[in-house]
Amino acid sequence: MFPVAKTTLFRPLAAALFTAALLAPTAHAASNAGEALSRIEADGYVATHELALRHGLWTASATTPDGKLISVILDPANDTVTPVSRDAFGTTLPTAQAAKDALQLAGYRNIRDIEFDDGFWEAEARKLNGEKVDLVLHPVTLEVLSEVGEYTASNSTAGGTRLTASEVRAALEAAGYRAIRDLDFDDGVWEADATNPANRRVELKIDPVSGQVLREKLDD
């Protein structure tokens, strides 16, 4: 966990980075692990590993041309690769205090255990109705990418009905996955191993209500 340090530098800079990313030209967005790997290496990063699709973003560990090991995030919506390193807090990346401030502005209370892990800010908090939730925030914009709360057997915190195993399999097959196995509901999400459209073996985490793939990681 990183110490909480107040900063205001990141706000205009983060906004500028985000705007630039949205306006950046893109020839082809990375839609699978193979394309994501190629896109990251095209920016000069090497020895890329632990590539995974998390919260709609590709994440990986990689080495910069000058030999620095960092995390990188690839947004498939605009094909932009963002380097994420510890020495960027307070400059190109917001601090833990900034993440806490953003959550408070969004209406969360009793915010604690803020930490930076695998390229994202994570925290525990309570909503205004008192429900305890685990949160994941975008490292630059501080947008809440995931909110996981207490889960019942039939409904998610969003109020939707949980998909059955057969419905999850059907959703994966419709998305181009095949050879689906080890389908299991664990810790509030569906998990499975499968072969993705790029013919790579991957480990998946699936939204229990929408059937959307939340995370795709190459199966080592």
Rank of each mutant, 00 (worst) to 15 (best):
L51S: 07
E191W: 00
W190K: 00
G130H: 06
T164C: 03
D113Q: 09
L142H: 06
A171E: 02
V144Q: 01
P94I: 05
H28M: 12
A99W: 08
R86I: 15
A170F: 01
T141E: 08
P76Q: 02
V189M: 01
A106G: 07
K127T: 11
G149Q: 11
H55N: 06
A102K: 03
L103K: 00
Y151F: 15
F10K: 08
L93K: 04
A106W: 05
A5D: 10
T59L: 11
N78T: 09
A52K: 04
E115Y: 12
L145F: 06
T26R: 08
A30K: 04
S85K: 04
Q97F: 06
D117R: 07
I114F: 01
I114M: 09
V202Y: 00
P25R: 08
S38H: 12
R39M: 02
V81G: 05
A5P: 07
R162V: 12
T95K: 09
V81D: 06
F120L: 05
W190T: 00
I40R: 02
G56N: 00
Y177M: 01
D182H: 03
V213I: 14
V213T: 14
G67V: 03
A36E: 00
V189L: 01
P12E: 10
D87T: 14
L163G: 00
S31Y: 08
A5S: 13
A106F: 00
V4M: 14
N129E: 05
L103V: 02
A198N: 09
A99M: 10
D117K: 11
V140D: 01
P208V: 02
T26K: 05
G130P: 10
V213H: 00
T48G: 03
L13S: 07
H49Q: 14
R86A: 15
N78L: 07
L57V: 08
E147Q: 13
A27W: 06
S146E: 10
K100F: 06
D184S: 13
L128F: 13
P139H: 01
H28G: 13
K132N: 09
E216C: 01
M1A: 14
L145K: 03
V140S: 09
L137G: 05
V168S: 07
P65S: 03
D87H: 15
G90L: 07
G34P: 01
A47I: 05
D118K: 10
F2G: 05
P3C: 15
D118T: 04
K100G: 13
S61L: 11
K68Q: 15
K132Y: 09
V46L: 12
L105R: 13
V4G: 11
E131A: 14
V144R: 00
T157D: 15
A16M: 14
A27P: 10
P139T: 09
A123W: 00
S166V: 11
L53V: 04
G34K: 09
V136I: 10
